[in-house]
C-alpha cells in the first residue's frame, strides 16, 4: 500500500475509527484524507480530531517546566514522558475502494483493530475527490468538533492536490450550497474559511 504509515487502528466502528500514532504528536493534519485496508477493501476517512493524553486515564500529566529553560528541555530531562503519553486521531469514514472503484459511501464492515493507517498521497486524494459525494457525509454527521471547521479544513487540504485549485473550491462550494440549502449562515462560514483570498 502506498503512502506514509501514520498510525494503527485501536478502535473502530462503522462510521469511523480511532488510530494511535507511532510517535507522539505525529497525527495527520485536521481534514486530511487517510486510509486503512481491510482486504479486499480500502477504507478512506477524514481526520476530524486528534488528542494527546496520558496512556493511563487515571493519571493526568502534571506541569513540569517550572525550572526548565525551554519546552524541549522538559522532554530531555524526563524521557519517560514520551512513553507515558500517546497521540491519537479520530477518523470519519467517508468512502471506500473495492477493486478499482471508489465509492463515496460507508463500507459494509468497519476497519479492523490494528490495521495500519496511511496518509493518502496527492494523486490518490485527487482521484478520491474527483466526485464530491463524500461532502454529504461530512455535512450530515454529528461530531465533537465544529462541522464548518472540519469541512473547510478538508476542502483546503484536498484543494492543494488539484491543478485548478480555484475551480475545485468553486465546485465544492456549489455542492455545499446545495447540501446546505436552507442553512445559509453555516454555508457562509465554510465559504469564508475556504476562500482563496
Amino acid at each position: 500500500m502506498t503512502g506514509n504509515r501514520v498510525g494503527e487502528v485501536i478502535e473502530a466502528s462503522t462510521a469511523g475509527f480511532t488510530a494511535q500514532c507511532y510517535e507522539l504528536y505525529q497525527s495527520p493534519p485536521l481534514g486530511s484524507l487517510v486510509k486503512t485496508a481491510d482486504q479486499p477493501m480500502e477504507l478512506y476517512g477524514v481526520v476530524y480530531n486528534a488528542t494527546t493524553a496520558s496512556i493511563d486515564p487515571g493519571r493526568r500529566p502534571i506541569a513540569r517546566g517550572g525550572e526548565a529553560q525551554s519546552e524541549d528541555e522538559i522532554y530531555r530531562q524526563s524521557p519517560q514522558l514520551l512513553q507515558l503519553l500517546r497521540s491519537e486521531f479520530s477518523v470519519l469514514v467517508v468512502g471506500h475502494r473495492q477493486d478499482v472503484n471508489i465509492y463515496h459511501y460507508l463500507p459494509p464492515k468497519p476497519a479492523r483493530v490494528h490495521s495500519f493507517v496511511y496518509s493518502c498521497p496527492p494523486d490518490e486524494v485527487k482521484e478520491f475527490s474527483q466526485s464530491l459525494g463524500f461532502l454529504n457525509m461530512l455535512v450530515n454527521t454529528g461530531l465533537p468538533v465544529p462541522r464548518d471547521e472540519l469541512i473547510a479544513a478538508c476542502l483546503r487540504q484536498i484543494s492543494h492536490t488539484h491543478e485548478d485549485r480555484h475551480q475545485f473550491l468553486v465546485t465544492a462550494g456549489k455542492k455545499l450550497a446545495t447540501l446546505l440549502g436552507n442553512q445559509f449562515n453555516q454555508l457562509n462560514a465554510i465559504l469564508e474559511r475556504i476562500s482563496d483570498q
Partner: peptide, 20 residues
C-alpha cells in the same frame, strides 16, 4: 434558497463567495 440570505447578505466583495 434560504430567506436569511436576503436578511444578512453575504460578503459579495469576495469574488469566490459570489461565484459559489
Amino acid at each position: 434558497t434560504d430567506p436569511s440570505l436576503t436578511l444578512t447578505p453575504p460578503d459579495v466583495a469576495d469574488p469566490f463567495i459570489a461565484e459559489v
